[in-house]
Nucleic acid binder design. Structure first.
Lengths: 222, 222
DNA sequence: TATATAAAACCGACCAGTTGGTTTGTAAAC
DNA sequence: GTTTACAAACCAACTGGTCGGTTTTATATA
């Protein structure tokens, strides 16, 4: 077999084994020996492809980021023409994809954080760009951010096995998040937002009692 | 020194050391030896207070849950009279508290998950009750769930060091989440919600295309 | 109150197993 | 014939956990 492809096959086998281990046994069980066992390679073989464990983690992260990047750009291409906020739509859809995909490669992220929190820098930086794009395209940046945050909440909760929601609810919520029409009702032009809530706790109700009233309020944008 | 208080002081020292370690070095670095070193106790001393590492984790979890439970009930007492949805308000405030508190004890959760995913059962069950209460009290349960999810998204993101948001934005978003008046505009009575978004991926634009147009669409309720 | 004794809290050396990583050897690809 | 891909034995450091012993506190007795 060709040398280059042989190498790539081994790298691939190792990384996929790693993901399998994380998903099955938890991030704490991801060791080099375990990867060797699970992939069929010898430990020496694994170490030949990745000089350190951190290299494995980094490769795992990059691979996952690449995967979702791909999904992202594909989705973006489809909606950028029709959507007013394609970046938000794309991010929401991507997060949903991550939450849905079974062996969720997003587990790589968890593993990375456990072992070496510093590695989180890479995804965080990429995320900052995305958030910036979302804010830039939105008539109400904070609302967009909140929709984005909600999606992430759903994703992370289920990723860590602490989601109290059923799959049905999960899907329904994502659908509503993605539906721009559902949110137009609370949009507020960036600056003139009335802040009726001071950051201190101990009171947060005041309004909200008569829910239907506000619904009819007309909304325009620049 | 009294025996009982001596014990409690040691337990306390160990648990606080544990939290410090998780926050500083990541959950993967939490070992019994590290706890001993960091707390000033000897390893034997630590082992005397906690028979196994799992016992440490469990104690950490329980302690954290107790702390937020306390905050929760306190907040609830204050707001239950005036708010239309006190459970949601309380949960939002509690999550904000967790996200704000510096040494965030919520890290215990991460550590538990890494070491023994089964431990997540306890917090998840408690969470399910809370979510049920939130749904029960709300005129638009899904909207409430989404506000709840957004709060969790903000919390978990910053907890894992992957929040791309500034502290200012963070605070502002929580404030808006808590303000019921800001959300009345999109409330929809539980059942007759239009689902224009099927859960398959690869298409989610269709609607939302002409955003302003849709915004004017009247939404009525029973 | 003084003292003997038990019990609890704590220490630190130690154990077997595991960890990330290295070294040495070998067969195939170049 | 040199480099590349892999295997297998190996290593020091560390892992969770045990154990015999020392100190501190509690209790009984006189």
């Amino acid at each position: 077999m060709d040398n280059a492809t042989r190498s790539e096959r081994s790298r691939n086998a190792a990384l996929e084994a790693a993901i399998r281990i994380i998903a099955r046994d938890g991030p704490g069980r991801l060791t080099l020996d375990a990867i060797a066992r699970e992939s069929g390679l010898s430990k020496g073989g694994v170490m030949h492809q990745f000089r350190t464990k951190e290299a494995v983690l980094k490769a795992l992260l990059e691979r996952q980021m690449e995967h979702f990047e791909e999904f992202s750009t594909g989705y973006m291409a489809k909606v950028s023409a029709t959507s007013a906020n394609p970046n938000l739509a794309t991010q929401l859809a991507t997060v949903r994809e991550a939450a849905t995909s079974p062996n969720s490669a997003a587990l790589a992220l968890v593993a990375a954080m456990v072992e070496n929190p510093g590695l989180m820098m890479l995804p965080r930086e990429r995320e900052m760009k995305r958030v910036a794009a979302i804010k830039a395209e939105s008539a109400d940046p904070d609302l967009a951010l909140l929709r984005w945050a909600a999606a992430r909440g759903l994703l992370l909760s289920s990723l860590f096995g602490m989601s109290p929601l059923s799959k049905d609810e999960h899907d329904r919520l994502f659908a509503r998040l993605l539906d721009d029409g559902q949110w137009a009702g609370v949009e507020q032009p960036a600056k003139e937002r009335q802040t009726k809530e001071q950051p201190t706790k101990a009171r947060a109700a005041k309004s909200g009692a008569a829910p239907a009233a506000k619904a009819a309020t007309p909304r325009k944008r620049a």
